[in-house]
Nucleic acid binder design. Structure first.
Length: 281
DNA sequence: ACAGGATCCTGGGGGC
DNA sequence: TGCCCCCAGGATCCTG
């Protein structure tokens, strides 16, 4: 990580953004949309602006790493932050940062909702009707929320694949919301090797993975909550929140449990850090 | 159907 | 100091 203080948004970061936005947006009307010239992962369609103008925000929610802004009249604004996306409510008179792609006006308010995304891996899409929203998640085969799962789900899911454990954790079809950072942290907490074949895991190891995924994500949510209140930087960053990670970005440093130097390998095309002593197959 | 690879994109870091 | 190259990674599309 060294000097890098951007955290790629995973479930805990997205949950934090949602909690941060909720009081600012709920009950407010979106009045307009300004669209930048550069396309996002999914192109914002010109007809969506007029369609959502004047709609009141009913609720702000989350599904996996997707942010859901439910509007009056069964419209659903679905936003993914990709790797570098930021969604902030800011004063209208504050200068608009480079790479701001969408600006939503808010009624009776001197603030506006801004979507900024340097790498443009993120997206914003408008769905009309609950069926269209359900169909989107159904077709993308988004897996269940990690907090809704029990060990039986993990046993079945892991037994039914030839892949290694970390690849399954990263797979949004298997479980929604886990990304590269929390996958590594959860496997360190569970003391299981990231390259372990998923189908060969013992019952006790599956239970450890199940508990570790939940505990790690919950700790992430708790820490982000603290960081956003205490250490939020002017550009909307999360300060020094990454100091809590035990393995992510720490290849070569001593394991906090046993002192063995942490090792790095590539799994599913993702940089993976683990303790070769604590984490076994 | 499933698994693995390529693709998109930019700022930052390493190497020379 | 400067330039080039490469790397990071989430979702999605493509191939075997």
């Amino acid at each position: 990580m060294r000097g890098e203080d951007k955290i790629v948004p995973e479930l805990p970061e997205v949950e934090t953004v949602v909690r941060d936005l909720r009081p600012h947006l709920t009950g407010r009307r979106l009045t307009s949309v300004q669209v930048g010239s550069q396309p996002l992962r999914r192109r914002w369609l010109a007809e969506w602006g007029p369609r959502l103008a004047g709609r009141r925000v009913r609720e702000v929610g989350r599904r996996g790493k997707w942010i859901l802004i439910h509007l009056q009249g069964e419209l659903h604004l679905v936003i993914h932050l990709g790797m570098t996306g930021q969604l902030c409510v800011m004063p209208v008179n504050e200068a608009t940062a480079a790479h701001t792609h969408l600006v939503f006006g808010l009624d009776r308010c001197t603030k506006e909702l801004r979507y900024r995304d340097i790498r443009r891996f993120g997206s914003a899409t408008l769905f009309e009707g609950q069926e269209a929203l359900d169909l989107f998640f159904q077709e993308s085969r988004l897996g269940p929320e990690p907090f809704d799962l029990d060990p039986d789900y993990w046993r079945e899911r892991l037994a039914g694949t030839a892949r290694c454990l970390k690849a399954v954790l990263l797979d949004q079809h298997a479980v929604a919301g886990v990304g590269n950072i929390y996958a590594d942290e959860a496997l360190f907490a569970a003391r299981v090797h990231p390259a372990a074949p998923a189908r060969r895991l013992s019952r006790t190891r599956v239970a450890r993975v199940h508990n570790a995924v939940r505990a790690t994500l919950q700790a992430g949510i708790d820490a982000q909550g603290a960081s956003i209140r205490d250490f939020r930087t002017p550009d909307g960053g999360y300060g020094s929140a990454q100091e809590r990670f035990a393995v992510y970005g720490r290849a070569g440093e001593p394991c906090e449990r046993c002192g063995t130097p942490l090792r790095r390998m590539v799994i599913a095309q993702r940089g993976t850090v683990y303790c070769p002593h604590c984490q076994r197959f």
